[in-house]
Amino acid sequence: MFNTLFISENLSENSHTDDTISGVEANVNLIEKINYTEMYETNGKIYFEKYILKKIEEKNVELLIFAIGAGMIIDIFFLKKISECFDLKIITMFSDSEHLFESNDRYYAQTSDLTWLLSPSTEELFNLYDINSVWTQGFDKNRYPKKELTKSIDISFIGGINRSNRLEYIDFLRENGINVELAGYGTDRGLISVEEKNEIVYKSKINLNFTGVENEDKKIFKRVKQPKGRPMEISMLGGFTLSEYSYGIEKMFDVNKEIDIFHDKEELLEKIKFYLANEKSLEEKAQCAYNRAFREYETNNSFLKVLDALEKIKYVNKTYFIDDNFAKRFTSTRFYYMTKFLIIGELKASFDEIKTIIKYKNITFKNFYFDIPRGIFHVLDKKIIYTRKIVNFLRTK
């Protein structure tokens, strides 16, 4: 079993990261899981990097898993140093490549032995760059246990209702006499717990899934559709999924035997009417989807797929190319942290950011009128919030 470090941008409790980590723990010797944002913001760049290097050496780490988000914290040349100094494997993991492939993910992915994606639709983008990739997502059977409850809800949707064109679909169904049970951000019920989400799935005959993404960075992103983890989650619970189509979803489930899809409002309405009149058909598909989900997306089995892909790799072409767009974004983040560290008195950490700024050579006017003020604002805002908490606490005494 690999001695492994799992290094993630965040380690939120009761998240899909928790699901992933449980699969990792079951199949390797997990030395430590590290929230790199928290460690970096507390101690700075040099401390963070030295900590990782020391841990690799002391614990004879053989596998590093970097779950990299949009934070622009990890230095690509730090990953280069790891590869040059240690005989180990690096897996880079990306959850939102539909948004971040061009600006972020393809640059970090080039430094790894294997890239782990959570959806099949973007895998071919990485393959174009000669990057070894695998897609899978794991769900913990203890958090998503299958149960048989009375199907008292015809149709439900759980998720942010204001994203993409979801509300248009819901309104269209309502206009045609179809009531949809809603929960999630922007709905009357609002955000709910994992247990409450599970209960809705157990009780629903049809669970809707939408694939349009939310990204206002570029207008063209309004066209992007991406199958994510919701159909897998529903299927782990034993529910039936009726999903908006997006490229790659047929790699996730058989769209004839395990789930079903729709392309527009009229087809959605037609299929809802069909399944409500043919409940045996949706029950059969839900059972087939559950079998597939447990076999491939249960967290232990999912991570075994990653390890199998890692073992089969015969050639790795690691490079460390950066372009101006990446360097400017990375430098922008350095100015932000330089300012934060300076204000809180972490002078060494602030100086380390300056050295990195000089190394990347991509200073712009925006660094001075936006990034520095942003750093000041975030420190002061945090102090104001902290002071209010102290005052409120004292008032209760």
Results as ranks from 00 to 15, higher is better:
residue 336 Y to C: 12
residue 135 W to D: 05
residue 235 S to M: 10
residue 390 I to Y: 08
residue 160 G to C: 05
residue 386 Y to G: 10
residue 199 E to T: 08
residue 137 Q to G: 04
residue 377 F to Q: 14
residue 223 R to W: 06
residue 293 A to R: 05
residue 232 M to R: 10
residue 216 E to L: 15
residue 3 N to E: 12
residue 252 M to R: 01
residue 355 K to F: 07
residue 107 Y to L: 03
residue 198 N to T: 07
residue 206 I to M: 06
residue 143 R to G: 05
residue 274 F to Q: 04
residue 232 M to K: 13
residue 182 L to K: 00
residue 93 M to G: 00
residue 346 E to Y: 13
residue 378 H to V: 08
residue 358 I to H: 10
residue 84 E to V: 02
residue 104 N to R: 08
residue 37 T to M: 09
residue 139 F to M: 07
residue 1 M to A: 13
residue 99 H to S: 04
residue 183 A to P: 01
residue 195 E to I: 07
residue 331 T to C: 12
residue 24 V to A: 15
residue 107 Y to D: 01
residue 307 L to G: 11
residue 90 I to V: 11
residue 254 D to N: 15
residue 181 E to R: 04
residue 218 K to Q: 15
residue 345 G to Q: 08
residue 321 F to E: 12
residue 70 A to V: 01
residue 115 T to H: 01
residue 383 K to G: 05
residue 93 M to E: 04
residue 385 I to M: 12
residue 318 K to W: 12
residue 396 T to P: 00
residue 104 N to T: 07
residue 167 L to F: 02
residue 314 K to H: 10
residue 47 Y to V: 10
residue 90 I to S: 03
residue 172 F to M: 00
residue 123 E to F: 04
residue 53 L to H: 09
residue 230 R to D: 02
residue 396 T to C: 07
residue 165 N to W: 01
residue 91 I to K: 01
residue 20 T to L: 13
residue 88 L to R: 01
residue 236 M to R: 06
residue 63 L to V: 04
residue 210 F to D: 03
residue 67 A to K: 09
residue 2 F to L: 08
residue 307 L to V: 11
residue 32 E to H: 09
residue 64 L to W: 02
residue 249 I to R: 03
residue 247 Y to N: 10
residue 39 M to T: 08
residue 224 V to Y: 11
residue 69 G to M: 02
residue 214 E to M: 05
residue 284 E to Q: 09
residue 166 R to N: 03
residue 80 K to P: 00
residue 287 Q to Y: 11
residue 9 E to D: 14
residue 203 K to M: 05
residue 43 N to T: 05
residue 10 N to Y: 13
residue 158 I to H: 03
residue 238 G to Q: 06
residue 153 I to Y: 15
residue 361 K to Y: 09
residue 217 D to R: 13
residue 86 F to I: 02
